[in-house]
């Protein structure tokens, strides 16, 4: 576990540097199992920073969310760095953004935090119900200790941690300037058993499942906006000329939206699972992403977000790529 006082100290030290503009980390949320990602600009605010298993959000998303306003004539753009705290999975987003040249490596200062898992709010609600008071938690290799208003309960990891954590392959940050705690030992592998199970169904069964799921979608685009890899300034789904997807919410447009979204993450999804977490109508979005992740791994031996020197999957090719289903 990371020592929070050390984390705050480090944050304050980084923020005090002249070439640093802001720092993205987490602070305690206003209720229940919530943590809030926060962007701080002054070393004095570093006191609010925390890191514990409630810190689910991926801070890498906020690097690219910041709007670039036109610089007034006679002024110069602020090119100071952004510092960002990352867990293992979050760091993969930074790697992939660097692979895609979203920004330069010099642009960010990465403070890595080895992580043993974060809490799934839905699982927590099933265990604890609707919690109003602020919750903190501790996690180790066996258990999660949840502190609800002074009342500490110990819970089994699989009952409360996010699914991504139970099969986490990269608990330690893959890119960082400084590591804020000792590396942790990897505890799991990923066999993509869930993907295989879903694939076993007939096309009719699969569609029946997705038809129900997609028809719930209200197209709030939260899954898109929260995604650290969805950082296009202009998105294909909001374009009007040509209009690829209509704004109408019906099964036809919703399906096409979800196919587009998943497709644009082919070979890019770093499995932070934020899309599924934020969905207000509980669509299992990762089921689509994980299918592609597995296929990309098997067919092209490619894994996004692990190697800064890698080529983007769809901007490269191998003459020996599989093609047995091509006529």
């Amino acid at each position: 576990m990371v020592d929070e006082s050390k984390l705050r100290e480090k944050a304050a030290e980084v923020l005090a540097r002249e070439d640093v503009r802001r720092l993205i980390g987490w602070k305690r949320g206003t209720y229940g199992f919530e943590a809030a990602p926060c962007v701080i600009k002054d070393a004095s605010e570093a006191e609010a920073l925390i890191f514990d298993p409630t810190c689910v959000q991926n801070p890498a998303s906020f690097i690219t969310l910041e709007e670039k306003k036109p610089v007034p004539r006679g002024q110069e753009a602020d090119t100071r760095k952004i510092a960002v705290m990352v867990k293992g999975c979050d760091s993969r987003a930074i790697v992939q953004q660097l692979v895609e040249k979203a920004y330069d490596r010099d642009h960010v200062i990465v403070l890595g935090i080895p992580c043993l898992g974060v809490i799934d709010r839905r699982k927590a609600a099933a265990l604890f119900g609707d919690v109003a008071s602020q919750v903190s938690a501790k996690v180790d290799a066996e258990k999660v200790a949840v502190d609800v208003g002074g009342d500490v309960k110990t819970v089994d990891r699989k009952d409360i941690l996010m699914d991504k954590c139970l099969r986490c392959r990269y608990p330690n940050p893959l890119v960082y300037d400084e590591l804020l705690a000792d590396e942790v030992e990897k505890w799991a592998g990923d066999e993509f058993a869930d993907v295989g199970e879903f694939e076993g169904q007939s096309p009719e069964e699969k569609w029946a499942f997705w038809e129900e799921q997609f028809s719930k979608c209200i197209r709030c685009y939260s899954c898109r906006n929260v995604c650290p890899m969805c950082y296009c300034v202009e998105c294909v789904v909001t374009k009007l000329q040509p209009q690829w997807t209509r704004r109408a919410t019906d099964i036809s447009e919703n399906t096409v939206y979800h196919i587009q979204r998943a497709w644009h993450l082919a070979g890019r999804c770093i499995e932070c699972m934020e899309c599924q977490r934020v969905c207000p109508v509980d669509i299992p979005i990762m089921t689509l992403n994980r299918k592609l992740t597995r296929d990309v791994k098997e067919m092209f031996e490619y894994e996004p977000g692990v190697d800064v020197e890698a080529q983007p999957l769809l901007a490269s090719y191998n003459p020996q790529d599989p093609e047995d289903f091509i006529m």
Binding site: F198, P203, K206, F209, I259, W263, A266, K291, L292
Partner: peptide
């Protein structure tokens, strides 16, 4: 290849 797999997954 990937779009083919994705569409298959959607049914």
């Amino acid at each position: 290849t990937l779009m083919h797999k994705l569409l298959e997954h959607v049914g």
